[in-house]
Each structure stands twice: as C-alpha cells, then as structure tokens.
Amino acid sequence: MIEIDNVSKWYGKFQVLKNCSTRIDKGEVVVVCGPSGSGKSTLIKTVNALEPFQQGSITVDGVKVNDRGIDLPRLRARIGMVFQSFELFPHLSITRNLALAQIKVLKRSQDEAVERGLTLLERVGLLAQQDKFPGQLSGGQQQRVAIARALAMDPIAMLFDEPTSALDPEMINEVLDVMVGLAQDGMTMMVVSHEMGFAKKVADRVIFMDEGEIVEDATRDDFFGRPRSDRAQLFLSKILNH
C-alpha cells in the first residue's frame, strides 16, 4: 500500500532523513517512534507530499508521490491525516469542518457530505457537538473530530502525526480508543507516537528512528521482546521505566 524507498531529505546541508526504506501493507498498523528530532514527523509527512524530499521515492497504492505532474490534491484526498495540533478550521462549525473537503474535493452534495460527516461524528461519540465551533471543544474532542474529518473522505490509509502529544493526559485515552477501534476495523495506519501502550495493543510493526535513520523495523513482539539496537533499547528503557 505505502512503499517508502531510500528516501533522503536535506534542509540545506543538514540531512533530516537518511535512506529511509519501509513498506506498509494493506490493513497493517505501523507505529513510528524515536527521540524528538529523529525525523519521524518529517517521514510521515513525505507520504502525502506535505514535505518534499530530494532522493528516493514513495509509492502509495501504485501512485508515485514524488512524480512531477501528478494530481497531488487527488492523491492527498485518498490519504487521511491527523495532526498533533488538530488543525480543525476554527471559523467553521463542526459539521462544516466535516463537510468542506467532501463537497469541494469529492464533489459530494451538501446533504450527502453532512450525512457522511455526522455518521462519523457519531462513531467518535460527538454527535451532540455538531453545531459547535472547534474552540468550544476540549482538545480530546477536537482531535476526535479531526479523525472523523479525515475518515469522511473514505481514505485508503490514515497517517497520524503525534495525535496525542498536545493533549492533556486525561484526554489521551479517548483519542487512542478511537484509533484502536480503527485499527481493529482493518484500517491501514501509520502512526507517529510515543504511546507504547497503543503500539503494544494494535501495532503490527514498530519502526524506531534516530537521527534521520530507520534504526529498527521489527514486528511488535520482536521490538518489545528483543530490540536489537542499543539505541532502541535505550529509548525504550527511557520511556517505559517511569
């Protein structure tokens, strides 16, 4: 489904991604972790071309992301993305947030878009908030709306860029629960996160990055059971032992 092949990226002389390669198959859930500045957020943003890169290639469902002249909006519309800081549109009601891209990009009718949006809003347990504005919701609620907004586009895969990092601790679980539900429904997911509990529960594979490199790319059991690299071991001991 998603193939990342030898991707390298530089900011000036500084190399942020170093020959990263991995693949995510249909229905797979892959968690990407690593210390801050390791390039994991940059990597996930290359998948839908929000971050350009200079070397290598990425293919999503047979479409090469880094080809010149591809219909980027169309490709992006097929890949859902959830951001650390939610990025709901603050000037639009929750219903309008859910419907906007469906109407403008997928050319769905107003009624159709609202109906699809509300179905997903119900799924994340926020149907009662449909007429509110993002600023009136808690962080956890906003992030659940953001997930519903991405799902309303009927994506073939979902990217999560640190979806719980900006949340107060008591709101993390309500978002993770939605994500676990998605994973169990068979959604293809790439998740940048430090939530090791989530990884242990639903990840098929865990990728560990450090200094722009994919240091470890292992199945969940291998990763938590016997990580091979010292760096991954050190990272795990730091975030698991407190």
């Binding site: 929000l50 909006p73 990009v105």
Partner: peptide, 19 residues
C-alpha cells in the same frame, strides 16, 4: 498547520485560500 490540514484533505491552492 491550517494550510497543511487543508492540503492533506485534498484542497488545492485556490480552495484552501478561499475556504
């Protein structure tokens, strides 16, 4: 991030500007 979110949803430049 607002523009990124709009792009990620598939809006093109004019749509993300206008809406």
């Amino acid at each position: 991030g607002q523009a990124s979110a709009a792009q990620a949803l598939g809006l093109n430049y004019w749509q993300l500007m206008a809406h």
